[in-house]
Structure formats: structure tokens, C-alpha cells
Amino acid sequence: MGFKLLSKLLVYLTASIMAIASPLAFSVDSSGEYPTVSEIPVGEVRLYQIADGVWSHIATQSFDGAVYPSNGLIVRDGDELLLIDTAWGAKNTAALLAEIEKQIGLPVTRAVSTHFHDDRVGGVDVLRAAGVATYASPSTRRLAEVEGNEIPTHSLEGLSSSGDAVRFGPVELFYPGAAHSTDNLIVYVPSASVLYGGCAIYELSRTSAGNVADADLAEWPTSIERIQQHYPEAQFVIPGHGLPGGLDLLKHTTNVVKAHTNRSVVE
């Protein structure tokens, strides 16, 4: 069995187990497998329904001669939608809004960016022009300005110390501490036991640490421990890039980060 097929099978099995364990909360999309990078042309966006009122959005972007996937989250909030992270750029984010209108038909009224990198804030200006209120932590807003990236308009308070959590509509926002970046936030959907790890969490097929220019490698494993301790009931975990899975993604990420750190020390 090929690795790609095995990865998709694991996603399907995880979703099936969740649907059985929580039949009222989960209505997993039966329309197909989780979209992969090879299936999404740059400039297009796919939506994948995880649970009743919960979707991931998947886009792709060219970077350094390669094409990478990027995940975000959409959560229903009454007759409105909360968006977590842009679709990595203005063109993708405009396509995301169009796809949401086509498939869901509810307005996106608020959006949260989970850290300051372009795959999370690139497209904020498109959201703002569409009347979406954009939010991020003060740290993310400051770092985005320093980096020359787009800056969300509103500040999220109460997320300055490791372990801080605040309720934001249908989700809980959690600051686990520094990891992929010093400002990275985690998003949890309690009604569906869905954990969105953003770039602080890796997919299972990833074996290298990737972009760690703004990471705190020493603190990252401790931050992941905080996530595990705060959300032990999480059933569906979405990484910032690639295929979702279960809580095993947290341990896998820790292993990859520690291996990278150990290699760096040896070198």
C-alpha cells in the first residue's frame, strides 16, 4: 500500500471513529477524501466538511520552486461564519470567499490569524475590503508590521502568557507558548472536538522541520505538551499544512522538532 493511500485511509478511519463516538456532533463529509496538494491548482481553494458547521479550507501556493498546501478553518456561528487564517495570499483568499459563498452561503463576518507569517495573514486586506472584521493577538499584529505583512485590524486580548485561553464565538483560542513562531495560536472547536494546530503542528508525513527561522526550538516541545494537557479530548487535529489526523500529530511534531534540534547540535 502506497504512503499517500495509507495517509488518506488514516484520515478516513479517524473521521469514521469520530462519527461513531459522537453521532450528534459529527456529520463528516462523505463526498470524498481530504484534498491534497496535487489536486488543488494554485489560485483555487477546496472546502472539506469535518463536522456539522465545521470545515477546513485548503489552498496551495508556490514557494521556492515548489507547491505547498495550506489549511485553515471555518466555523459556523449562528447565521454567520468565523474564518481562521487566510488562504495564503490575496488571490487565494478572494477564491476562498467565493467558494464559501458557493458552498455554504453564509457571510464571513470575523477572521482570526493564528500567527504573523504570510500563509496566515496574506489576504487580510481582501477580507477587510469584503467587510470582514480581522483579528490577531497584539504580538501577531506587531510582528506582521515588522515583517511588512498585512496586519489584522483588531487585537485579541488575554493571550499574552503561555497557557492563556479565551473564548471567541464558537471557538476557544489558546496560546501554548512559542513553537513554530513566538505568537502562534491554537484554535479548538469544543462542539466538535476539532483542534486546529496551525503551523505549530505537523502532518504525519512530514519528517523535516522546514521553516524554523522564527521558531523557538527549545520551547516548542513544552508548548505541545500544554496543548495535549489542555485538549486531551480532541479527536480531529488539523495541521497548518497537509493531512489531518488525531492527537498523534502532536507527538510526531515533537519528535521531528527534537530530531532537528539534535542534528543542529551535532553539526
Rank of each mutant, 00 (worst) to 15 (best):
P152N: 03
M1Q: 04
A94G: 12
L249G: 01
G158W: 10
E267N: 05
W55K: 00
A59N: 10
L96E: 01
A94D: 13
F174C: 01
F236C: 08
Y196W: 05
L97Y: 04
H57D: 04
T254R: 10
C199I: 00
E157H: 13
E44C: 10
A111C: 12
I100H: 00
V257P: 00
E233M: 10
I84M: 08
V237W: 02
K4L: 04
F63E: 07
A165R: 11
I40L: 15
G43R: 14
L204M: 09
T261M: 10
V189I: 06
V37N: 07
H230D: 12
L5P: 05
P170N: 07
Y202S: 11
K8M: 07
I84N: 01
L5G: 06
A130Q: 15
D79M: 08
W88T: 00
D164T: 09
V42H: 14
A15H: 06
S70D: 02
G72V: 01
S7M: 15
S62H: 15
E172K: 04
A19G: 08
L143H: 13
N255Q: 15
L5C: 07
V187D: 03
S155Y: 11
A98I: 15
P221E: 09
V126G: 06
L156D: 01
G72A: 01
G242Q: 01
Q49Y: 06
T182C: 05
K102S: 15
A200C: 14
N149E: 11
Y48M: 08
V37E: 11
D85V: 00
D118K: 07
S30P: 07
D164K: 06
F3I: 10
A178H: 08
D85F: 00
P170S: 08
T60V: 09
G169I: 03
V237K: 00
S208C: 05
A179E: 03
S223K: 03
P138I: 15
R141S: 11
N184M: 02
T153H: 12
R120M: 04
N149Y: 12
T109D: 13
I238T: 03
S139I: 15
V121E: 01
G2R: 06
A21W: 12
P35E: 11
A66V: 11
T93C: 03
L6M: 07
I227V: 11
N92C: 03
E157I: 12
K91R: 13
V45F: 03
F63S: 06
D216E: 10
V42G: 10
Y12M: 05
S56T: 13
I17G: 05
I50C: 02
A19Y: 13
V11C: 13
N71L: 02
G177M: 00
P107W: 05
L9H: 06
R76V: 08
G65N: 15
G123E: 03
H154W: 14
S16N: 05
L156N: 02
S70F: 02
T140R: 02
Q235F: 04
A66F: 08
V256I: 10
A95Y: 11
L81G: 03
G32E: 09
G2Y: 11
Y202K: 13
L96A: 07
V75R: 03
Y12D: 13
L6T: 09
V146M: 08
W55S: 01
G53Y: 06
I84F: 14
W55Q: 01
Y231T: 02
S205L: 12
V146H: 13
L217F: 13
E147F: 08
L127W: 02
L6I: 09
L249K: 01
L127Y: 04
L106R: 10
L83G: 01
D248P: 06
L73H: 03
P170A: 08
G245Q: 03
V45T: 12
V45R: 02
Y188T: 01
P41D: 11
A192S: 06
G177E: 01
P244T: 05
G78N: 08
V75H: 04
R46Q: 12
I186L: 07
S137A: 13
Y68G: 05
T153P: 09
I74M: 13
H260V: 10
R128Y: 06
A259K: 14
D125K: 15
P221W: 06
D79A: 15
G78M: 09
D183Y: 03
D164E: 08
W88S: 00
F168K: 03
T182H: 05
A200Y: 04
D52K: 08
L156W: 02
H260W: 10
I84R: 00
I17C: 05
A90E: 12
S27R: 10
T60Y: 05
G246E: 06
G72S: 02
A192Y: 06
N184Y: 02
G148F: 12
N71I: 03
T36M: 07
L173E: 02
V126W: 06
S27C: 11
T134I: 05
S160W: 14
W88V: 00
S137R: 12
P23C: 11
P35G: 11
A218N: 12
L47V: 10
R206H: 11
C199P: 01
A90K: 08
M18I: 05
Q49P: 12
F168N: 00
T36R: 09
A15D: 09
L5I: 08
F168D: 01
T60S: 10
D214Y: 13
A111D: 03
L10G: 08
T153A: 12
L249C: 01
V45S: 13
A136E: 03
A98Y: 15
E233R: 14
E225L: 15
D52P: 07
V132C: 04
E44K: 08
P35T: 14
K91W: 15
D214L: 06
R206T: 07
D118N: 05
G2H: 15
S31K: 14
E147Q: 11
T134S: 11
D85S: 00
G177D: 03
D64L: 11
A95I: 08
G2T: 09
V194C: 00
S27M: 15
A130L: 14
V67G: 10
T253K: 00
V257K: 02
W88F: 14
T60H: 14
V266P: 11
W88I: 00
P170G: 10
Y135P: 01
G89I: 01
E145D: 08
S22Q: 06
T86F: 00
G210Y: 03
G72P: 02
E33S: 12
D64W: 13
D216S: 13
V265R: 10
V194I: 09
V266C: 02
I74G: 02
A209T: 11
G245A: 05
H117K: 02
V257W: 03
G245S: 05
P190V: 05
L204G: 09
G240T: 01
L47K: 01
G198Q: 03
P244E: 03
L127I: 06
H154N: 04
S205I: 11
A15S: 12
A144C: 09
C199M: 00
V256A: 06
T254K: 08
I40Y: 05
D125E: 11
E219F: 15
S139L: 10
G158L: 09
T222Q: 13
Y188H: 09
P176A: 06
A15W: 15
P23F: 13
H180T: 01
K251G: 11
K91I: 09
R110W: 07
R110Q: 15
N149W: 10
L127V: 05
E39F: 10
S56H: 09
G210C: 04
V187P: 02
W88N: 00
G122K: 15
V28I: 12
G240K: 03
D79Y: 15
P23L: 10
I104A: 03
V256W: 03
T93P: 01
I186P: 00
S22M: 08
I201W: 02
G72R: 01
H260S: 10
S22V: 11
A15N: 07
E145W: 10
G148V: 09
L156I: 06
